[in-house]
Amino acid sequence: MSENLPAQAQTVIIGGGSIGMNTAYHLTRLGHRDVVVLEQNQLTSGTTWHAAGLIVAGLLKTEAECAIYTHGRDLYATLEKETGLPTGFRDVGYLQIASNDERVHEMRRIAPFMRRFGINCHEISPKEAQELFPIGDLSDVKGAFYIPEDGRANPVDVIMSLARGAKMGEHAFLKACTSAIC
């Protein structure tokens, strides 16, 4: 395989998992043409293949966190349209619960901040939380927040779609990579 690798490259990314392929995808979208992704076996052969695939905001406290989260969520929701490869993204929603007053206060303080950045985080009653999660024992819940656009994706599918996206178009090219994406 080493005979297929270039002698030099502008950017070399070690690892063909979530971080590596997100980096390659975004660099090629910015116009970088000389991007090499190195993976010892095949894409996602590290830890990505067994990741949960949750695309959830949690409690974000900075503008940067909100921007990174919304960009990722929106990307994974629309990447299939760009690449033709599914990501498995489903916006099934995300429920956060609090069983003490301090956590409820923190969630109430952070939710408006998140909404300012386009994250639809809103408070629901413990009864509504129980309806969303009927198999859970929420008897001690004092407060709950719900983000309907949050969801999950298939980590392996996301990586394959990102890899294709990095290789697509006149402005995107992976010069050398593992056999899984070449």
Rank of each mutant, 00 (worst) to 15 (best):
E106R: 09
E106Q: 11
M107Y: 08
R108G: 15
R108C: 14
R108W: 09
R108D: 15
R109W: 13
I110S: 03
I110E: 02
A111S: 11
A111F: 01
P112C: 10
F113N: 02
M114H: 04
M114A: 03
R115H: 05
R115S: 09
R116P: 09
R116M: 14
R116K: 15
I119V: 06
I119D: 07
N120R: 13
N120W: 07
N120L: 12
C121H: 12
H122N: 12
E123W: 05
S125Y: 13
S125P: 12
S125L: 13
P126I: 00
K127P: 11
K127W: 15
E128T: 13
E128Y: 03
E128V: 10
E128R: 12
A129I: 00
A129T: 07
A129C: 03
Q130K: 13
E131V: 15
E131G: 14
E131T: 15
E131W: 13
E131S: 15
L132R: 08
L132N: 00
F133D: 13
P134H: 09
P134W: 05
I135P: 12
I135S: 14
G136S: 11
D137I: 08
D137A: 03
L138G: 07
L138W: 05
L138V: 04
L138E: 01
S139C: 12
D140Q: 12
D140M: 01
D140A: 11
D140E: 13
V141H: 00
K142Y: 01
K142T: 06
K142I: 07
G143M: 01
G143S: 07
A144L: 04
A144Q: 01
A144G: 03
F145L: 08
Y146D: 03
I147E: 03
I147H: 05
P148D: 04
P148H: 07
P148Y: 07
E149G: 03
E149V: 00
D150K: 01
D150C: 08
G151N: 07
G151D: 07
R152L: 12
R152Y: 13
A153I: 10
P155W: 04
V156W: 02
V156C: 13
D157P: 11
D157I: 09
D157K: 14
D157L: 14
V158T: 04
V158E: 00
